[in-house]
Amino acid sequence: MRDADPGLFGPASVTWQLHGDPMMWVAGVRALYLQALHPRAVRGVFRNSTVFDEKRGRRDAWGRLMRTAGFVGTITYGTTEAAEKAGARVRRIHRTLGVDEPELLLWVHCAEADSYLSVLRRSGFVLTDAQADRYIDEHRTSARLVGLDPAGVPSNTAELAAYFEKVRPELAAGPEAHEVDAFLRRPPVPAPLVPAREVLWRRVAALAYAALPPYAHELYGRPVSAPAAVTRQLALAGTLLRCIPARVRWQLPPKHILRAMARLGPESRPAPYKLRRQAAILDGAGSTRAHRRSE
């Protein structure tokens, strides 16, 4: 196991531990809500993709959500070769959709990084501020995979916040954004799964929407509870989901984490306590493997 390929991040990274948390599903939906507020980015998807086409794409949109989750799992827990191939596929798709401009790629990247970090921290996943900064820095590796120059991507939470302040005047909830909202609130599913959608999925989507920053709620025009109340809801959801044994959650396809553990050994399993135990190391001088690869 010692010589096995740890991939682009590896078990010592913040990313490895964070992405194994079940609240990543809520965070991923929040990212889609946020990404849809950039008119040029979401317009390119609608113009060049069947994802939201009423006749063909409404069902494929669900598949797109799964493919996005698969990409994150592959680049986090897969081998270096698998991650690089996944990045190449995404770059080809972006060229096809016409959303491969650096400005648009940066928006998509930052919306994802902010959503993952914000939702997990608010739901009770404990990170020091230094670890949060390290996570944003590590995430520049995924920026490179989708075609961005890591040198131009925020490397800490302060730079990420400054980026959002800069881009906010460009954001708007146009017709495409409201179409994304409608899809996320009521995605098409086979008839037998309609009850599950009404009971489970709509709660996930509502929580993801509530977790958006206040300016996003203003743009969409749907108010939510006060931020403190939303944080309590996120914490409750996080507590409940983390009660499901990790080994049970990880059995769901495509089993990225289990395959990584088979490759690297059981000690590589992601777990929040490792960040608490290793805080002194992770927050000390030096750079992570992911940071070195991004330079």
Results as ranks from 00 to 15, higher is better:
residue 130 A to F: 04
residue 118 S to L: 03
residue 101 E to L: 09
residue 76 T to Y: 06
residue 99 V to L: 04
residue 149 D to N: 14
residue 102 P to N: 00
residue 103 E to P: 00
residue 87 G to P: 08
residue 139 H to A: 15
residue 117 L to P: 07
residue 148 L to S: 08
residue 110 C to S: 01
residue 146 V to Y: 10
residue 147 G to C: 04
residue 89 R to G: 14
residue 119 V to F: 08
residue 136 I to Y: 04
residue 139 H to N: 12
residue 76 T to C: 03
residue 120 L to G: 01
residue 126 V to P: 08
residue 78 G to H: 01
residue 132 A to N: 05
residue 109 H to Q: 02
residue 81 E to F: 10
residue 123 S to C: 11
residue 140 R to E: 08
residue 112 E to Q: 14
residue 85 K to G: 13
residue 141 T to F: 11
residue 117 L to Q: 09
residue 103 E to Q: 12
residue 113 A to R: 01
residue 102 P to Y: 11
residue 105 L to H: 05
residue 149 D to F: 02
residue 147 G to P: 08
residue 89 R to D: 15
residue 147 G to R: 06
residue 119 V to Y: 07
residue 94 H to E: 04
residue 76 T to I: 03
residue 109 H to W: 06
residue 85 K to P: 08
residue 125 F to W: 10
residue 111 A to Q: 10
residue 84 E to K: 15
residue 124 G to H: 06
residue 138 E to H: 03
residue 80 T to Y: 03
residue 107 W to T: 05
residue 84 E to T: 15
residue 149 D to T: 04
residue 124 G to E: 00
residue 122 R to I: 01
residue 78 G to L: 02
residue 135 Y to V: 05
residue 101 E to Q: 14
residue 143 A to C: 04
residue 132 A to Y: 11
residue 101 E to W: 05
residue 131 Q to E: 12
residue 93 I to Y: 06
residue 78 G to W: 02
residue 126 V to R: 15
residue 147 G to W: 05
residue 112 E to A: 09
residue 80 T to A: 06
residue 80 T to Q: 12
residue 141 T to A: 14
residue 139 H to M: 15
residue 148 L to Y: 04
residue 92 R to W: 03
residue 105 L to E: 00
residue 112 E to K: 13
residue 82 A to Q: 14
residue 140 R to D: 09
residue 89 R to C: 13
residue 88 A to P: 07
residue 145 L to W: 11
residue 110 C to F: 05
residue 80 T to P: 05
residue 111 A to P: 10
residue 147 G to M: 09
residue 113 A to N: 03
residue 93 I to K: 11
residue 96 T to K: 15
residue 108 V to H: 01
residue 115 S to Y: 01
residue 112 E to I: 15
residue 94 H to K: 06
residue 97 L to P: 12
residue 120 L to C: 06
residue 113 A to Q: 03
residue 86 A to Y: 04
residue 116 Y to I: 10
residue 145 L to A: 07
residue 103 E to C: 07
residue 107 W to Y: 11
